[in-house]
Design a protein around this nucleic acid. Structure first.
Lengths: 108, 108
DNA sequence: TTCTTGTATCGATGTTTGTCGATACGATAA
DNA sequence: TTATCGTATCGACAAACATCGATACAAGAA
């Protein structure tokens, strides 16, 4: 396959541009965004500034448990913030985290 | 759950910011990027400008079929370009597609 | 406290996905 | 042509995931 273990055919190919750990972390954030329902949830919340969970199942046409699971995924990934207000759960977009993902996708 | 079918508790929540089809398409591109091995492949290729497939299995520590499968996923998503040169397959980053993904992640 | 209601968790299921060994395809070399 | 070698495809398998119904939890209302 390759000519030699450490005599690569392409120059500059040995530099660890993106570490294994860094790739794992970025992939985790991208995975949270790489679902059509979650993308729509993020856009809906972003366009409203804030949104309470009560409206979201109807807007994305999914069951309440499914939406809850997706929201929890997005919160865990740091893309959405969450706050309980009375009996309602409110969500907003963590713009910084989204920017970080965007910038991590900027290659040299 | 929600107060009324079309009397939402949050203003501006009914606008279809991101269509279902648009979400599906963007999710597809993000899914192609949302894997640590594929992310490292993209970064390796980007840092070298071009890379032939021969070196990549060793650099990402995966078998040749696995790397071939990942490269094919990235090419299908439009993130990598591919050209056969003699018996070697060469890859490069399609910067435009990557920029498009980045921009699609910019909310308002 | 008891009742009501919004949200999260549990359990199950069908689908997708990352991975590899074996094998087929393709292009150069002999 | 035949042999060699780089790459893609096939088949299989385990792990991850999206989804939902049922149920548990939590917070206000009565």
């Amino acid at each position: 396959m390759a000519p030699e273990p450490d005599n690569l055919c392409c120059p500059g190919l040995a530099d660890p541009v993106l570490s294994e750990a860094g790739a794992e972390e970025l992939a985790q954030a991208l995975k949270a965004l790489a679902d059509p329902v979650r993308l729509r949830l993020v856009h809906i919340v972003a366009s409203a500034g804030e949104a309470c969970a009560c409206d979201l199942p109807a807007l994305v046409d999914r069951s309440q448990p499914t939406v809850s699971h997706h929201l929890s995924t997005l919160v865990k990934a740091g893309i959405l913030g969450r706050e309980q207000r009375g009996k309602w759960a409110w969500f907003w977009v963590e713009a910084d985290q989204l920017s970080a993902v965007r910038e991590a996708l900027t290659l040299s």
